[in-house]
Structures are given as structure tokens and as C-alpha cells.
Nucleic acid binder design. Structure first.
Lengths: 340, 340
DNA sequence: TTATTTAATGAAAGCGCTGTCAAATTCGAT
DNA sequence: ATCGAATTTGACAGCGCTTTCATTAAATAA
């Protein structure tokens, strides 16, 4: 059996109350006694039992992080950021993923984490009625990553993708002299894709450029389908001197590879850009012009928001917007005055 | 305040003992009463308090997973496998990473998870004395991923990398008619690199091929350094008709890109192969010949071992070996009778 | 000196649950 | 009817901790 507070008390010749006090609010106990207790704690290698403590305090110091998936560079980076900040703030992180075809029950049990998390950060790839309903009944503090649930009290951290996507399209138009931009998105129902597509349309429209129906295509964010699409369309795109704006780096990489496969030079004959700025973006040749999404900051900010909410339940809900940022590398073929 | 077992008892007109019984061993209570209790539970939306429960049962149903890093495709996949299986088995997963320069304290606190995990799976990239010592004092069940601590009681799951690496080199020699194979590894202290290097040397030796000192180089598993190395050496390698055996896919990708950059065709003029079979391997052109490491199985098996240990503390320790497997794709330029 | 604060400590009441033990009830079998 | 054995239930003692309240000792004021 592990050593308990009673053992410490006995060894230090004090009552358990005193031990508890040095554990929690050390200042209210006499310096000598405190020292004695601390020595006993160290000698015995005592660690308070989390359960007993949680039972009294109603607090576990555990935060939940629920993601649509645990796959790939993007989520991996979000986890990293969240985990790091959580530890800094004295919390542990519990991670779950919910299948996209979830009926809400998986989400619920993930969010509740068997009722032991103090709060939870949730990222949902598409907000449907069921998700809303499920989340509406969650009683612990939660923050929504990259999304918003009107009418439900929660903090959120979102990425300003429109601005980043807009900047990208503008860049393509201004610096790359694009007349035609092809948009390759993820699923049409995906929030991120919707945002990026909207910004794309707006910016094109503002520049008096038309968007042909065939110039918007929806895939699923994966490399292979993008590569296949590229094999079919890359010739035509290059012929019309189009730019390709892929909604993530992985698809951009697929398209670049398809182009190279067909003997089309990137960026000389075809300009391709991505989104997210995952490590993939540095693993393409030419290196990818993309929009940097602060993934690990997202995770970290979510944790921070959660913690500050735990400190002050009453604080007004905040919506933290993180900027995305255009990263110009080589694949867009931008005219560069400094000649990189 | 949340609804407690007492509320349920009151509502169902029974004692809390009875409620507890239907919660735990439902069969020993009368069918009618049970139904009444179950209804009350549902109506009240009752969820047992984990802390109170944990306090009695000394069990949290939480497993720890400690990794050297949370970055990239590899770990991401391990986490995925572990998480999935954990949920299947009714456990939650708590993930931590420990910095490589850790003095042991981070490892310890990660492993202990504030004393609330029932068991923990630990992956350490290099086993030094401090790590050993730290782990030796861990009293909860733990399984070591991809490593072994002699003299300390623990289960482990390891990848048979030697076999995979050996098969790869053999393949290079037999099917690709390699006379010279260059090995590009991670840090020399890294266990995986050491294993793979050893297998490489052995196989080369067995085939009466010499390994020049310059033909073993240590990088750090990252793309960019491999790309830089490639830029310098690729010409020479191609000239001597060498094969490049990179210790992970990412470095292989870097070398391939460097080769292409220099106008050297892969695999026609230079053969390059990788290791791990992460998604990166499918994102190179030509697609990467590599050794498949069952990353998610690793995570899943670790969780399984842990759970079975929790069920039976006395069971003899087991060492589970997972096979790695040669995956022949295009980048090795193997003669393929079926002409893919 | 005596009355009154103040500081430091201990005793004990739970927190919500499980599990032991005894009491109450039912059921056959005498 | 009568008794022993199941069967079903409730009372209650903890699990290890925090916290309230009371107690004691020391310090200050009168």
C-alpha cells in the first residue's frame, strides 16, 4: 500500500490536518513544523492520492482534448502545443478522437472523459445539429477549436483563415499575375474548406476574375487523390497558365508531384500553393508557398483559455482569433525583387 | 452539484448499496429492483463519481503513454493505435512527451501521471543509466516500447528491425544488384538507428560487400539535413551506382528530392530506400521502397499488454516482437518480373 | 496581574463510492 | 406448521484527503 497522509503525520509527529495544510497553504503553519513535515514527506516519498484529493476538491487537473482524428502533421502539432502548455500550467492532457460518423455518443463520452476532466477543448470538423445538441448538454467548461456554436456558452479559438486565404489569392493575382486560379478543397462540408473557398471566391470576384465551375474541385485533403487529379488536369492547367490553390499542403504536394511526373515544371509552367504550413510544405521541391496556420498555438491557446475559465467561471466568454499568415516560398513562382 | 448515488437510491426507493450493486454486479439484484434503479439512473442522468470510485477501487482506468516526442507521422500513428485499443478496452489514454535532455524528473512525473494512471507505456529513444534508474523505481505496471531494461520487471513490445533492415539490404543486393549501399541514419546513439545499422553491416558483410567509412553517415531523421547531404553527395553516389538506405522515410524523401534537383533520375540513376513506411513513403515520386513498421500495432499491443498485466499482476513478463516488413515500391528500381 | 486577541494545532465531519456483514424475506423440504 | 437455506436488501465502516470548528498556547492590551 502506498504511503498516506497519515504516515507522514505520524512520522512528523503532527496531525493529518497539519500535513494537509503544508501541502496546500504552507504559509499558515509554523516554520519549524513545516520543515519537519516536509522532511517526512520527502523521506517517505509521499504523493497525495489524486482520488481522495479530487473527491474533496472536485478538481482533477486533467484537461480533455478531443480531435476529429489523431492522424498526420496537423493534429500532431495541435496536440504538441496543447500538451506543452498544459504541463506548464500544471495540468495533464487526455486526448481522444471521435470518428466522423459518430452519432454523438462517442463525442459525449470523449468530452466527458468518464467525468474526470475539469474542462475540455473540442475540435469538430463539421458542426451539425447532433454535435450542437451533444455539446449543449455538456456542463463542464469547454472551448471549441476552430468553430463556433451560437447560443451555447463557450470560449473558442479560431483561425482567421479568410484573411490568410484571401492574402494568398491576392498574392497569386498581384505577384504571380494569375488570371485563373483553380481551387482544390477538402470535402465540401468541411468548415475549413468552406472558409477558404469563400475567401477565394471573394478575392477573385474583387479582382474581376471569374471562377469557372470546373475550377473548384473537392477532394478529401489526402495526397493520393490530389496526385490522381493532377495527372488528369495538370496539362490543361499549365496550358492556360493557371495557379492551383490547394486547401492543404498534402494535396498541393500531390499536385506538384503529378505535374513533375508529366514533365511540367513547377513553378515555371504551373504555380501551386498549399495551406497549413505543415512540415510537408518544407518537404516538397520546389518548397511550398502556403499559409501558415499556428497549429501548436491553437492547442496552447485552447488550454490557456480553458485554464483561465477554470479559475474564473464567471468571466465573459472570449473568442480568440489567431492570424494565419502567408508564407511565400518557391512553388508560386512569385516575382521576387530580392532574387531568392 | 452533480447527482450522486444517494439521489438515485432515494428516487428508486432502495439503499445506496443496491444502487452500487446494479452498477457493478447487476446480476445479484432482483430484476424488478434493478429495473427501477436503472430507470432512476437514466432519468437523473447519473454518472458515478470517478474519484470516489477510484478511491475505493484503486483503479482509474487511465493508461499513460510516454513518448520521446509528439511530432510527426510516426508518433502520431503510435498514439492512434494505442488510443483506439485503449478505448476498446474501456480505458482512457493520457499522453506525455519527455524532452530528450530530461534529467529523469520529467520522465518520472510523466510516467506517474500525478499518480493516477493504472499503468504506463514508455518509449525511450535512448536508454541511459538515468532512465534505467528512474524506471526501476516505478511501482505501477509499465511496458517498454521498442526497448528493454534488463533486470527490471516489465513487459515490452519491440519491433524486429534487424530482420526488416536485413531484408531490405538483401533486397538491394539481390534484386537491385547493389554493390555499394550507403547508410544514412539518425543520431548514432539512437536505438533504432543502431539496430538498423547493425543489420546493414551484417548483411553487407555476409554478401562480401565492404562498407567504407564514408558510406555510413549520421543525421537526425529530418528531411532538410538529408536534402542538404543529398545535394553534396548524390552525384558521387550515382556515379558509383550506389543505393542509399535511409533510416527513415523522411530522410529518404530529402535525398530523392536532392537527386531530382541535380537532374539525377530515381531510381534509374540512383536507388533510394527508406524505413518506417509512414505516409511520407506514399508521398514521394517515385514512391518509396521502405520497411513497414507496424506503428499503430505497436501502440495497440502496448495497451493490450498493459491491460492484461493489470488483470493479472502475476503473469510472467512477456516480450512481444512485431515483425517489420519489406515493402517494395518504385524507388529501389528493383527488377520486377510483373512489370509494374 | 488579568482579560483579550492572535497564532498554531488537532479532532472530526464529510466527499461519493464499494464491500462486508447482518437482517429480512422467500422458498422448499420436512 | 416448522426449519434451514437461499436470495435479496440495508446499515455502516472505511478509502485518503480537505476543511470547519474547537482547543490550546503565546502574545498583547488593559
Amino acid at each position: 500500500m502506498a504511503v498516506s497522509i497519515e504516515d507522514v503525520a505520524k512520522k512528523a509527529n503532527v496531525s493529518i490536518s497539519t500535513v494537509s495544510r503544508v501541502l496546500n497553504r504552507r504559509n499558515i503553519v509554523n516554520a519549524d513544523t513545516r520543515k519537519r513535515v516536509e522532511t517526512a514527506i520527502r523521506d517517505l516519498g509521499y504523493r497525495p492520492n489524486v482520488f481522495a484529493r479530487g473527491l474533496m476538491l472536485r478538481k482533477s487537473n486533467i484537461l480533455g482534448l478531443v480531435l476529429p482524428d489523431l492522424h498526420g502533421e496537423f493534429y500532431s502539432e495541435v496536440i504538441r502545443g496543447a500538451n506543452f502548455r498544459a504541463h506548464e500550467l500544471g495540468y495533464q492532457l487526455m486526448i481522444s478522437s471521435v470518428p466522423t460518423d459518430d452519432d454523438g455518443s462517442a463525442l459525449l463520452s470523449a468530452v466527458l472523459g468518464h467525468g474526470l476532466v475539469d474542462g475540455v477543448a473540442v475540435m469538430v470538423s463539421q458542426v451539425d445539429a447532433r454535435t450542437r445538441e451533444t455539446l449543449a448538454n455538456v456542463k463542464i467548461p469547454f472551448v471549441v477549436l476552430d468553430g463556433n456554436l451560437d447560443g451555447i456558452k463557450h470560449d473558442s479559438v479560431v483561425i482567421d483563415q479568410r484573411q490568410g486565404a484571401g492574402a494568398m489569392v491576392q498574392h497569386l493575382i498581384d505577384r504571380c499575375e494569375a488570371k485563373r486560379v483553380v481551387f482544390v478543397g477538402g470535402l465540401a462540408t468541411n468548415i475549413d474548406t468552406m472558409e477558404r473557398l469563400a475567401a477565394y471566391r471573394e478575392t477573385m470576384h474583387a479582382a474581376n476574375l471569374t471562377v469557372a465551375a470546373a475550377d473548384v474541385v473537392h477532394l478529401d485533403y489526402r495526397y493520393e487523390p490530389a496526385y490522381q487529379l493532377g495527372l488528369e488536369r495538370v496539362g490543361e492547367w499549365a496550358a492556360s497558365d493557371a495557379c492551383v490553390f490547394a486547401a492543404n499542403d498534402e494535396m498541393a504536394a500531390g499536385i506538384i508531384d503529378a505535374a513533375i511526373e508529366q514533365g511540367i515544371a513547377v513553378p515555371q509552367q504551373l504555380r501551386v500553393v498549399g495551406f497549413d504550413d505543415t512540415r510537408i510544405a518544407q518537404m516538397t521541391r520546389p518548397r511550398l508557398t502556403t499559409v501558415h496556420v499556428p497549429m501548436s498555438s491553437m492547442g496552447a491557446s485552447a488550454v490557456e483559455l480553458l485554464c483561465s475559465r477554470l479559475d474564473d467561471e464567471k468571466r465573459p466568454t472570449t473568442k480568440l482569433t489567431l492570424q494565419s499568415e502567408l508564407v511565400v516560398r518557391v512553388s508560386c513562382g512569385a516575382v521576387d525583387r530580392f532574387g531568392t
